[in-house]
Nucleic acid binder design. Structure first.
Length: 696
DNA sequence: GAGCACTGC
């Protein structure tokens, strides 16, 4: 422990913290910042210390290590708090928590008086929650100037910017403990990064001394292709010409038991070649890696506020990401990083920092959260944060919130909106629960909301062999033809009837972890509903359920009210739909949907959808049939909407258009926002094209 | 008739 670089800087750090309310600490990998900063401040007698982490596992493992170093029982002086699990007590002085948990805490106590020190760790990852916390911290240090210290840890390329945001606070540099990594660039960008990765990996395997190889690819498809090509080539090598090799895929939808294979060391005289997504960038650390191959690409989910549509695009990584990837080669000894792009691309085209999540997500939930905090001294609409989102994105959020009565026509939060903010759900689902409580179907709505919260983790990732699973398995219910929400409800109820039998999940191809998560979420939502609901609460299944089962009318009505901004109307003579938002989109029901056709081969006239996804064709994922008479009042409300009033009478569009993408190295950023959008769409299309070419 | 980077309250 004494060998950690940060220990030598203790005096300097303490001195700087004593003199300044905010300090930025640049601590590279291996500096020990996550475990040591809190202990230093604790030793100097500061009161309760909160340290946020973007990931649950990190909060738990770092807390465990600190407790061990201090020789105390975990949960006593040192503890952690993550969703569903609070291991702290009255004696806790050092508390590790996920940034989401700290946001929840500040909902109950906006001044966070409990803490003397708040450390936002890994701020350079720019998670949505960390960005919001940074905005709140800027306000908090003014209000609690005498008794609060804030530390923010970040990466080299971002430090000055964060410092500027906090009134030019001091920046301390703490070196990391990485071995040198030699970076090698390609002369030009390869026409196929898959082939290029293959060739580079084989070259390393044949020529270079022992040490594992880590290859960064963009997704499961490419990983599987590369793994099988590598296996062929390695098998074809002449026996005895070089050491053996095992090839391991690593990505998020791999079942956990296959993921952990990368943690067991290879047999002697054998090299491991790990082909991974960016899960290996931060979430999982593979020991023994000496060579890194970096394609320079990543798959990124982005939200388009003008269409309300998500897309998953292959985009170039940022410099911070490239350096993080390279660093994975130098953890145990000096290593090499092969970048499959020229240094010119790195210098001129890569952004310094990954585009923050706040500029890539729908902000309905965040805006509702901030409004519910009721901070008179902060202008939410200016989003006075490190990288403000576009005004278009904010207006989209306001419109959504207005349509579900979370805010009134002047943009002020309503009492129902206040309650919705308490629920750890996106606003549309929170509203669905509130409506369901009125219609006597909260019991079912809780299940639907919980199932949707876990949706992506329910089905296992081996889709090659089980492609048509959803349709071919007959034992799973089909939503009675009414749509995917109803199916999700029915699936959970089947599981409930087996007394939550693990074997039942396995038999039906459902991820056990995912289903257990659903049960936890459901319980949590139920408890919060009990807390915030003053009137009678219908959380237990009671009699009269049978007639309800027929068509789930009330539940579908509640969903319709909750998803008021996610409605679609079928086109006259075919099964395409037109969304009823502000910019009508022509979309299709996703082919995986269980929504059924009527006798004439037609889908229902109206549906609500959980999300729009461009893949690249536009689809509605998770749809539910609703009735026209429920939809009409919503359409009328749509007509009455006045965005100008919602935004508090301020024209934000004209205000600061150049702030939209502050970090793009493009010189011609001062174009109108529509042209700007077009530009980025063209850019995205170009990258998709390149990525497709790479796959061939 | 078709597809899914990674987190998290």
């Amino acid at each position: 422990m004494v060998s950690l670089p940060i220990v030598q800087y203790e005096e300097k750090i303490i001195e700087t913290v004593e003199r300044n309310p905010v300090v930025v600490v640049i601590g590279e990998t291996g500096s020990g910042k996550s475990t040591q900063l809190s202990q230093m401040l604790h030793r100097r007698g500061y009161g309760k210390i909160a340290i946020t982490q973007p990931r649950r596992v990190a909060a738990v493992s770092v807390a465990r290590r600190v407790a061990h170093e201090l020789g105390v029982q975990l949960g006593e002086e040192v503890g952690y708090a993550i969703r569903f699990e609070d291991r702290t007590s009255h004696s806790t002085r050092i508390k590790y928590l996920t940034d989401g948990v700290l946001l929840r805490e500040s909902l109950a106590n906006p001044e966070l008086n409990e803490y003397s020190v708040i450390i936002l760790d890994e701020a350079h990852e720019r998670s949505l929650n960390t960005d919001i916390l940074m905005g709140l911290m800027r306000r908090l240090v003014n209000i609690r100037s005498s008794d609060l210290k804030v530390l923010i840890t970040s990466a080299t390329l971002d430090g000055e910017k964060v410092s500027k945001f906090f009134a030019d606070c001091p920046v301390l540099n703490v070196p990391g403990k990485l071995y040198p990594v030699e970076v090698l660039y390609s002369r030009e960008r390869p026409s196929s990064y898959l082939e290029s990765s293959l060739k580079t990996a084989l070259d390393i395997h044949i020529r270079e001394p022992e040490g594992d190889i880590l290859i960064f690819m963009t997704g499961q498809d490419d990983i599987e292709k590369l793994v099988s090509k590598l296996e062929d080539k390695v098998r074809a090598l002449e026996e005895g010409s070089c050491m053996d090799a095992i090839i391991l895929p690593l990505h998020g939808s791999l079942p956990p038991e296959l993921q952990v294979r990368v943690f067991s060391p290879p047999p002697p005289n054998c090299r491991r070649i790990i082909v991974a997504t960016n899960i290996a960038e931060t979430s999982l650390t593979v020991d023994g890696v000496v060579y890194v191959i970096d394609s320079g690409y990543v798959k990124q989910r982005q939200y388009n506020p003008s269409s309300g549509m998500y897309s998953l695009d292959v985009v170039q990584i940022s410099k911070v990401q490239a350096n993080q990837r390279a660093g994975r080669a130098g953890r145990t000894r000096p290593g090499k990083c092969y970048r499959l792009y020229p240094s010119r691309i790195y210098n001129d085209e890569f952004l310094d920092v990954t585009v923050p999540e706040i500029q890539r997500s729908s902000l309905a939930g965040s805006v509702l959260y901030l409004k519910s905090l009721d901070l008179p001294d902060i202008d939410i609409l200016k989003f006075d944060f490190l990288d403000p989102p576009s005004s278009e994105s904010l207006q989209d959020a306001l419109k959504q919130l207005f349509l579900i009565d979370a805010i009134d026509e002047n943009g002020a939060i309503t009492s129902i909106g206040q309650k919705m903010a308490e629920l750890p759900l996106e606003p549309s689902l929170a509203k669905t629960l509130m409506e369901a409580n009125n219609y006597g179907c909260l019991y079912e709505a809780l299940t639907v909301a919980a199932m949707l919260s876990a949706e992506t983790t329910l089905l296992p990732g081996q889709r090659k062999t089980e492609k048509k699973r959803k349709h071919t398995i007959s034992n799973l219910p089909d939503g009675s033809g009414l749509g995917d929400h109803i199916q999700l409800l029915q699936i959970y109820e089947c599981w409930d009837q087996t007394d939550f039998d693990i074997g039942w999940c396995k038999d039906n191809g459902l991820q056990v972890r995912g289903m257990l998560f659903v049960r936890d979420v459901r319980k949590q939502l139920s408890q919060i509903m009990q807390k915030i609901s003053k009137g009678p609460l219908d959380v237990r299944a009671n009699g009269k359920r049978e007639e309800f089962r027929q068509d789930y009318r009330n539940l579908r009505k509640a969903l319709c009210m909750g998803y008021a901004n996610q409605l679609a109307e079928r086109k006259m003579h075919h099964n395409g739909y037109r969304t009823l938002g502000f910019q009508a989109q022509v979309v299709q029901v996703h082919p995986s949907s269980v929504l059924s056709l009527d006798d004439l081969g037609k889908f229902p006239d109206y549906v609500v959808y959980h999300e729009l996804i461009a893949t690249p064709r536009p689809y509605m994922r998770n749809v539910c049939a609703v009735e026209m008479r429920w939809v009409i009042p919503i359409i009328n409300k749509l007509k009455s909407l006045d965005v100008y009033k919602l935004s508090g009478g301020v024209h934000h569009v004209e205000e600061e258009p150049e702030k939209k993408l502050p970090d793009f190295p493009k010189k011609d950023v001062e174009v109108a926002s529509t042209a700007d959008d077009r530009e980025s769409r063209i850019q995205a299309a170009r990258e998709r094209f390149l990525a497709r070419k790479g796959k061939k």
